[in-house]
Design a binder for these strands. Structure first.
Lengths: 139, 139
DNA sequence: GTGTTTGCAAATCATTTGCAGCTTA
DNA sequence: TAAGCTGCAAATGATTTGCAAACAC
């Protein structure tokens, strides 16, 4: 079990069941999940846990950049653990399955964009949509 | 003024003030806007217009693929006119200004991704974050 | 002990819908 | 006239907050 560590900016933090479980769910889940999904999983392990608790823990985790919010078009806000290597997502149109894509596979260069727009690029996010293998076959 | 034209799937459509104004706002605005922003602009020209009217017109326009919803991380759903050539967005962290980026500037290949994941790629969306020139200078 | 965290309930905010009256064609 | 469109009000759903009790340290 990974020990909970807040960023240096945080003075204190307490090790609670909710936090431990939330971290565990994030670690076990490869694809981004909604707060609702997270809450359901947490509530199974900790009956009676409040949605607001999950909300606040994740809120804190996001501020501390331990989890990050990733944006998808239609679904609501999704969260995933930040520790994993930089990657992007490929979402299946049919079943909403999410595959990870490494940055190298995309190979586009920010500098060309930076030059033509005058922006300094600080971050990029790519979302691909497609149809996964199983769904292609079950057609 | 561009004439309102629904897709062939639509049997009928009526030319109303709300629709004309909504189209006009979309045409004049280069960056994606929220429903709220759109509503405010429409309401200025058409006092007393209902939010739900704007909602429903945009809903219809989206179904007819005349406007498209683009996803950003933090802000809510954003809409933009679809007619423009395929492009992506570069958002300024400081002032939320949005610059367009042509697809060619990014030059990444779906086929490599398709090969390694088994997915058939149907669409892609790129969101870059950065700091625009004015904000760099005003620092 | 004491300051953080939690559960509960309620506030907020965005999105969506039902309906009856109005408008466009 | 008739089907579409609109305003209004209210439902829904997601997100957020206040507060007192419970808990970690």
């Amino acid at each position: 079990m990974v020990v909970y560590t807040y960023s240096v900016k945080e003075k204190t933090s307490r090790n609670t069941a909710a936090k431990r479980k939330i971290e565990e769910v994030f670690q076990k889940t490869t694809s981004p999940i909604t707060l609702k999904q997270l809450y359901k999983k947490v509530a199974t392990a900790i009956p009676g846990v409040a949605y607001s608790t999950v909300f606040r823990v994740v809120e804190r985790l996001e501020k501390d950049t331990i989890v990050s919010r990733v944006g998808f078009k239609d679904r609501g806000a999704l969260y995933e653990w930040s520790g994993r290597p930089h990657h992007h997502h490929l979402v299946c149109e049919k079943c909403d399955d999410v595959a990870d894509i490494s940055d190298q596979m995309l190979s586009f260069n920010d500098s060309k964009v930076a030059k033509s727009t005058g922006f300094v690029i600080t971050n990029h996010s790519v979302e691909l949509t497609g149809i996964c293998k199983p769904c292609q076959e079950n057609n």
